[in-house]
């Protein structure tokens, strides 16, 4: 029996967890040290798809990408927003130091156009970051996007609903995002290419509403407050 096992192991036909080699893939730091540590010190993979799974906007999902956005714009590359669910608010982006000349908003009508556009953006050398809100996607289509992403060396982040966490996906990195107690963002690594998933961390996100140093809420109570709330 042990001889049989030995043969299998020598032929490398059985994968062994402890022999796992660290793969190095090109990546962009997320700008959050805590999250980078959880992602093996790397960050957003380049030339591959990343997925952020979240239920509702407004939990700090854009701030998660803001450091990368700022860096990409500073490098003179373009940030594409593909089918965003709401309007990116220009004054807020400008305030954060994002060069709006490098930001292009694209709205597509049907799914064919969406995939075609995303592929074209991913293959272009001018692209630094693509953020896309695809809605429904079949696994086959994500595979197609993954191939397109491999053709370029950009970061591509798909924002999808949390319920797709069960669906398998060829994306290189999958993060589940959930709001925390104190306006922070809980990041749960569902999948990470070349390493183990399952890491969790919480990122402080209260700077997004200038609430960092204010312990107590500073709501001025008006005479109307009690009636209407």
């Amino acid at each position: 029996m042990s001889e049989l096992l030995n043969t299998l192991m020598q032929d490398a036909r059985v994968w062994q967890g402890h022999r796992q080699t660290r793969t190095t893939q090109p990546a962009e730091p997320t700008g959050y040290q805590v999250l980078d540590n959880q992602l093996g010190g790397l960050g957003w993979p380049r030339g591959a798809l990343s997925e952020c799974l979240l239920d509702a906007p407004g939990i700090g999902e854009l701030h998660l990408l803001l450091p990368l956005m700022q860096r990409v714009c500073a490098e003179g590359k373009t940030v594409f927003w593909l089918n965003p669910p709401h309007t990116p608010y220009a004054p807020a982006l400008a305030r954060e130091g994002v060069n709006l000349n490098q930001v292009v908003l694209i709205n597509t009508e049907d799914e064919g156009d969406f995939l075609w556009t995303l592929e074209n953006c991913l293959r272009s050398p001018v692209t630094g970051l693509v953020m896309a809100w695809p809605g429904k996607l079949a696994a086959r289509e994500i595979r197609r996007l993954q191939l397109a992403a491999e053709a370029g060396s950009n970061v591509c982040v798909l924002f999808r609903e949390r319920r797709y966490a069960e669906q398998n996906s060829p994306a290189a990195l999958r993060l589940a995002l959930a709001p925390g107690e104190h306006q922070d963002l809980k990041v749960n690594v569902l999948k990470r290419r070349g390493s183990w998933p399952g890491q969790c961390c919480s990122l402080a996100m209260n700077q997004r509403a200038d609430l960092a140093f204010r312990e107590s809420p500073r709501v001025v109570q008006g005479p109307w407050a009690d009636q209407s709330r």
Binding site: T78, P88, A90, L100, V104, L105, I106, D113, W116
Partner: peptide, 23 residues
């Protein structure tokens, strides 16, 4: 490359599909 990409996108999606923002 920028011009090529933008022109391609505009040709397929129509000119109003691509927007840029400013405050």
């Amino acid at each position: 490359a920028w011009q090529t990409l933008i022109s391609r996108l505009q040709a397929r999606l129509g000119e109003n599909a691509l927007r840029q923002l400013s405050p």
